[in-house]
Design a protein around this nucleic acid. Structure first.
Lengths: 196, 196
DNA sequence: TAGTTTTCTTAAGGTATCTTAATTTTTTTA
DNA sequence: TAAAAAAATTAAGATACCTTAAGAAAACTA
């Protein structure tokens, strides 16, 4: 693992942004998080398997998405460098995933198995704190998305999206942005042309 | 506080459902959580103040809601006995609340000040674990709400709601359910009459 | 670089849901 | 218990967004 140590730098940085960790604990963390390379369009998690890993994006761009009975696709979440991505329900309950996770660009992720992460929680309380805070923030961000989707028009949501997530918008096809915002790709196209 | 000890029982139960806590820590927890009685319709948090407390519902029914510039009201969250309710963003960032919190029935809550809860996190790691798990679950539940609101019709969301939250439905006016589901009260009324 | 596939655009007709408004029903208050 | 206030219903017209479909543009691939 020593040769690959660099690959863990964004992860350690990400953790240190929120909590203090002692230098002696860093090797434990690095050891638990295994790197994985993904090609563009590669599917990392299928809906016929359980999500057993918590995943950190070292580089690239991914999304999770849901396909309903009518075959329609809904982007649940995007993730870029420094973000975390998972089907958390599947991970927590060990049930079959509801969402696919897919790389939208060639990507590198660091994944930690549930058992290893649970061990880290016991050995390094700061890691548990880190996830407590991450989860708080993820919850807040998503609740905000919920409220906006109820109270704002599609155009206003799109404008907020490109303002807030310009680096995502540039890495993903427009129809995925539409499905993240809960609108049809045709309608998003119309919205964009009305902005000009 | 000894005379009021019973009032903390639902809280301690709620914590024990998720994590093991040692008996000696229980008084610390009880001491940190202060009871507060609310009358029906009483507003517990206004949008001109910072939310400084994490709140557990011992009894009753509450909601958080958002009012946009046009004066339209959106129910963000409901809560009943055994649930937690807050404007988490305000609590975490110490900024003015975006959401009101209001009692919909006479209610009893237990609230812990941010500073006291942070102390508990340091003294009792199980409490931090408890919140880590609670936040994971809250995030999952809300993400599920997001996906459903994108992929299902209003009728189907309403049917899921009354199935899942019958005890809430019976305690809140129908127009609040509508605003939680992201539909107008008139449309919810039409949906209900079509079900008959 | 030509061919193929994927993504985006445009437009027309359709539908779910909204807005407004008036009426009825239920709940609260005096 | 009567009056007042709040909530729910009904209905009609309005609109944001969807669906379908076809063509154009852009991005891959051989």
């Amino acid at each position: 693992m020593i040769a690959n140590e660099d690959i863990h730098i964004p992860l350690i940085e990400n953790i240190k942004e929120l909590v203090a960790i002692s230098e002696k604990d860093i090797p434990l963390i690095i050891d638990a998080f295994k790197p994985k390379e993904l090609t563009k369009k590669e599917i990392l998690l299928h809906t016929d398997e359980v999500s057993n890993y918590m995943r950190f994006i070292s580089d690239g761009c991914l999304r999770s998405y849901y396909i309903n009975e009518s075959g329609q696709e809904y982007t649940v979440q995007f993730g870029i460098k420094g973000w975390w991505i998972n089907d958390l329900y599947s991970y927590l309950t060990k049930t079959i995933a509801q969402y696919y996770i897919q790389a939208l660009q060639p990507s590198t992720i660091l994944q930690v198995h549930r058992d290893d992460l649970d061990n880290l929680f016991n050995k390094i309380p700061a890691i548990e704190r880190f996830f407590r805070i991450k989860m708080e923030r993820a919850y807040v961000a998503n609740l905000n998305r919920t409220v906006k989707s109820m109270s704002e028009t599609a155009e206003s949501r799109y404008l907020s999206f490109i303002k807030k997530y310009r680096d995502i918008e540039q890495n993903v096809p427009q129809y995925m942005v539409a499905s993240y915002l809960g609108i049809s790709p045709e309608h998003l196209s119309t919205i964009r042309s009305n902005l000009r």
